[in-house]
Design a binder for these strands. Structure first.
Length: 877
RNA sequence: GCGGGCGUGGCGGAACGGUAGACGCAACGGACUUAAAAUCCGUUUUCCGCAAGGAAGUGAGGGUUCGAGUCCCUCCGCCCGCACCA
């Protein structure tokens, strides 16, 4: 036998060396590229598989989150490819956005050169990961050859009535000097800057996402390969509620009826007899109107505006109202007048910005009623309750699901159930012509105007004569000017001396270009479709999209559960409506991976310290250069601010991409947060070396003697079972389990290799198992796999090799180990031929020592047999 | 407040309602080495026992079942999303 140890003489030249990824990885990357292994072509008749990871923002360098995301995508792509699919696996750059402009402002670098430099760096880093990407399809959203199609589609959307320009109250980010969409405001702060968002009135472009509210909602049911969590978040975000919109007659303090009534929205119209006041938003037109002649009301409106909408404020805020001196007449109790208040808890942005208050059954209304001494009339009570004794204390009565309740104190509704009363009152409103059934959504239209330079110009022109006119399609793209200055706050496009001056596409007179640019979420709302035909002179070539779309597997962070994923679902619907694509749902299957987390270190002074600067000595952490002791903090998401980052480039340089990839997939399920640890990476590194030694040993194996030991059957079974399990795991994205199976296969192969004097059969089984092993880990460690594959004597490349097929005969078991329980506790086990019947098993089981001991003379009441799995003997006494 | 998820060894985590802890990390013991690293062999849920074997055990308590980490109810803790949405 040849000794595999590096120290031994006489072994082959390869075998005496450690596996060196620094040599092999660039070599195989170059080979794959030269042979265009990953360039996708449409092939009729071959099943296609479109794998896509959310494309990166070119911030400068890749981070571990990218490594995890792209490794998962690559494993899927390589596995599907081997399994016979025609795989599309493209990559691009979400290249517009604020950081490029910040670099321009802070360092005087042009956003374009900053962006393209970053792309070059990051492209190189991604290539060093050995990803099976089709680089011929690369796109950058900041390239006019990309955004011109976005502009063309926007014009089509305008013509299709999916675009609106309106003055509205918008979220203004005072740090980024731009407008934010509702989805981009988190806890009252800008999603990027973290600044408290202000309200401003501005003329803005909107995409009418609300035109698809119900469709976006109901189609979620069909997205059965999306995480339930994401579907639920979108459902809540769209926030559909069914109710009624109806109008109260309004009179003033002198009993004079006003021309206009007060229209409210409610989902609890059955509680109308419990109404004791009405409340309107401080921003309601009626409130604004009255404030013109009422200084106290003006003050109240200011107070409400100052409060904002952040979480803390809402929790603390007391329900407050300002009586307007107006009264709403109850529609069914003509003697009752409901005072109307402007109130701080009514939002202008939802429903009608006006409600009726039913204090008995709504906590906010109750708080309000108690403060202003308004009546509290219970109108819904548990069935059987005496209406005379049912009272409300400090808590509103809200019936729970499934509770049996009836209407009380409600005139013609008395005795009805809530659904019956809803129906009856709705009918009555409709008959009397004062109200209609109405579905409301929480979802607002998507404000897409941004007052920034580094984005896609909105292709319209403002003409004093013609108004807003879209740019002619033949004049697209509207390109960004290159000579811009960032010397003052605000939008450089607006400050540019000439760019905005143009002529009207309709009348030819001098006119102004729109200087707002698109929200960058538009750029990422269709890039997946562009990848089907990335160089086409139209947004999407129909045949290409028909072949490749939808994306079969989309992978990214859960932070995009609403923003990007909802916008994309809308945008594709708009593209469908305007004839650019044939489908509505872009992503058939979605996977949201967890974050990469790491321990945090800080000095006693409180400064964060990079993990690379922390050294562990005798159970204590110290700073590598200053030597001062370090405090170990929590394990948190890798972030620059806490410095708990590990640079992928350093890791790849030290261990190679395969090791980094292997670590990312091991142990932790892909949807959970993974903790990056030095010992884990070391472990992955050692395993690459172990595989390399194992393959070397197999490669050097001579022909076994016919008389040698071992029939190889056990190993063959292990290998085929491993392949069957790994195939199943990879199909279902259970990478950590697949990796455990690969460890087991390597262990089984190692055990077989330790047999002295191997028979021919065992030797052949070893060769087969080694091939299987290499093919099985190839999606995770593609470079090592290619190198090992050559060493095993194959002339093909792994990328061009088929996924191994498990032989069902070897996967199936002919004998089984059955656990034997007595009263549910395991007492013994029994290995028998598969498929024994209860009658055959019973005597065998009762004869077992462990069973006899446990029974100890007790009488057997019953024997439960689950074929080939378990026997449970139930006894008494 | 509403909605959702999760709780298993020292750690990451396995486990169609059917032998809890696969696989990995770490630790410990041993072999090899002048030594270290690497490598190889072994041990590692807890408790009792020399062992054979036994007892307990999946956040807590109850239930369904021949059998529960898994299903149901109540509670505790942690995480995430939304949040004055009428």
């Amino acid at each position: 036998m040849t000794c595999p140890r590096p120290c031994c003489e006489g072994s082959g030249p390869m075998a005496s060396e450690r596996y060196n990824p620094r040599d092999t990885e660039p070599r195989w990357q170059a080979w794959w590229a030269e042979n265009r292994c990953f360039e996708a072509r449409e092939e009729a008749g071959k099943p296609k598989y479109y794998v896509l990871e959310m494309f990166p923002y070119p911030s400068g360098r890749i981070h571990m989150g990218h490594v995890r995301n792209y490794t998962m995508g690559d494993v899927i792509a390589r596995f599907r490819r081997a399994a016979g699919y025609n795989v599309l696996h493209p990559m691009g750059w979400d290249a517009f956005g604020m950081p490029a402009e910040n670099a321009a402002i802070e360092r005087g670098i042009h956003p374009a050169s900053w962006t393209y430099d970053n792309i070059a760096t990051m492209r190189g880093q991604l290539k060093s990961m050995g990803l099976s990407l089709d680089w011929s399809r690369e796109v950058a959203t900041c390239d006019p050859s990309y955004y011109q199609h976005e502009q063309a589609m926007f014009i089509d959307f305008m013509n299709a009535g999916l675009v609106e320009r309106k003055v509205s109250q918008v979220n203004w980010d005072p740090v980024d000097h731009t407008v934010l969409a509702n989805e981009q405001v988190i806890d009252g702060r800008g999603w990027r800057s973290g600044a408290v968002v202000e309200k401003r009135e501005l003329a803005q472009w909107f995409l009418k996402i609300t035109a698809f509210s119900d469709d976006l909602l109901s189609a979620l049911d069909g997205l059965d390969k999306w995480p339930e969590k994401v579907r639920l978040m979108q459902k809540n975000w769209i926030g559909r509620s069914e109710g009624m919109r109806f109008t109260f007659a309004v009179e003033d303090a002198h009993g004079k009826t006003l021309d206009d009534g007060l229209t409210v929205f409610t989902t609890r119209h059955e509680t109308i007899f419990g109404a004791s006041f009405c409340a309107i938003s401080a921003d309601h037109p009626l409130s604004k109107h009255l404030a013109q002649h009422d200084e106290d009301l003006q003050a109240f409106r200011k107070e409400v505006a100052a409060l904002g909408t952040s979480e803390e404020n809402i929790e603390k805020a007391e329900k407050k109202g300002y009586p307007l001196g107006l009264y709403a007449r109850h529609p069914f109790r003509k003697d009752v007048k409901l005072p109307i208040y402007a109130a701080n808890f009514v939002l202008m942005g939802y429903g009608e910005g006006a409600v009726f208050g039913c204090p008995a059954h709504d906590q906010r209304d109750l708080d309000f009623a108690r403060k202003y001494h308004l009546p509290v009339i219970p109108v819904v009570a548990p069935k059987g309750t005496d209406p005379k004794t049912f009272t409300i204390g400090d808590e509103a009565y809200v019936e729970k699901d499934g509770e049996d309740t009836v209407l009380i104190n409600s005139g013609f509704l008395d005795g009805l159930s809530v659904p019956e009363a809803k129906e009856k009152v709705a009918h009555r409103f409709e008959v009397e012509g004062i109200g209609t059934r109405k579905v409301n959504h929480r979802l607002r239209d998507w404000g897409v105007s941004r007052q920034r330079y580094w984005g896609c110009p909105i292709p319209v022109v403002h003409c004093d004569t013609c108004g807003v006119v879209p740019v002619k399609k033949e004049d697209l793209p509207v390109k960004l000017p290159e000579d811009v200055k960032f010397d003052k706050p605000g939008n450089p496009l607006d400050h540019h001396p000439t760019w905005k001056h143009t002529s009207c596409p309709a009348c030819g007179k001098p006119a102004r270009r729109e200087t707002d640019t698109f929200d960058t979420f538009i750029d990422s709302s269709w890039y997946f479709a562009r990848f089907c035909s990335p160089q086409a002179g139209m947004p999407v070539v129909a045949e290409a999209a028909r072949y490749w779309m939808p994306v079969d597997q989309y992978i990214g962070g859960v932070e995009h559960a609403i923003l990007h994923l909802l916008y994309s679902r809308f945008f594709v619907r708009a593209m469908h409506k305007t004839g650019h694509i044939h489908l509505d749902e872009p992503f058939a299957s979605l996977f949201t991976q967890g974050m990469v987390i790491h321990e945090t270190f800080r000095t006693e002074a409180g400064d964060w310290v990079l993990p690379a600067d922390a050294v562990h000595k005798e159970g204590q952490w110290f700073h590598a250069t200053t030597g001062e002791p370090l405090l170990v903090g929590g394990v948190e998401k890798m972030s620059k601010s806490k410095k708990n980052v590990v640079d992928p480039e350093t890791i790849i340089a030290a261990y190679g991409a395969d090791t980094a990839r292997w670590f990312m997939l091991s142990d932790t399920p892909p949807e959970r947060d993974i903790e990056w640890t030095e010992s884990g990476v070391e472990g992955a590194w050692r395993f690459t070396q172990r595989l390399w030694r194992l393959v070397n040993d197999v490669a050097e194996l001579g022909k076994g003697a016919a008389s040698g030991a071992g029939d190889g059957l056990e190993l063959r079974r292990a290998a085929h079972r491993a392949i069957a399990a790994i195939t199943d795991d990879l199909m279902n994205l259970r990478f950590n389990r697949a990796i455990a199976r690969i460890f087991e296969l390597a262990n089984a192969l190692g055990t077989a290799m330790a047999v002295k004097d191997k028979s021919v059969a065992l030797t052949e089984a070893i060769r087969e198992a080694a091939d299987f092993l290499v093919l099985a880990f190839a999606p995770m460690m593609p470079h090592l796999a290619e190198e090992a594959w050559q060493l095993l004597g194959h002339r093909t490349a792994v990328v061009n090799s088929a996924w191994p097929k498990a032989d069902p005969a070897l996967v199936a078991r002919d004998d089984v180990t059955i656990a034997v329980q007595v009263n549910g506790k395991r007492r013994d086990e029994l290995t028998v031929a598969k498929g024994l019947t209860q009658a055959e098993l019973e005597p065998l089981v009762l004869a077992l020592d462990g069973v006899k001991r446990a029974l100890d003379g007790k009488s057997v009441a019953k024997i439960i047999v689950v074929p080939d799995r378990i026997v449970n003997i139930v006894c008494k006494g």
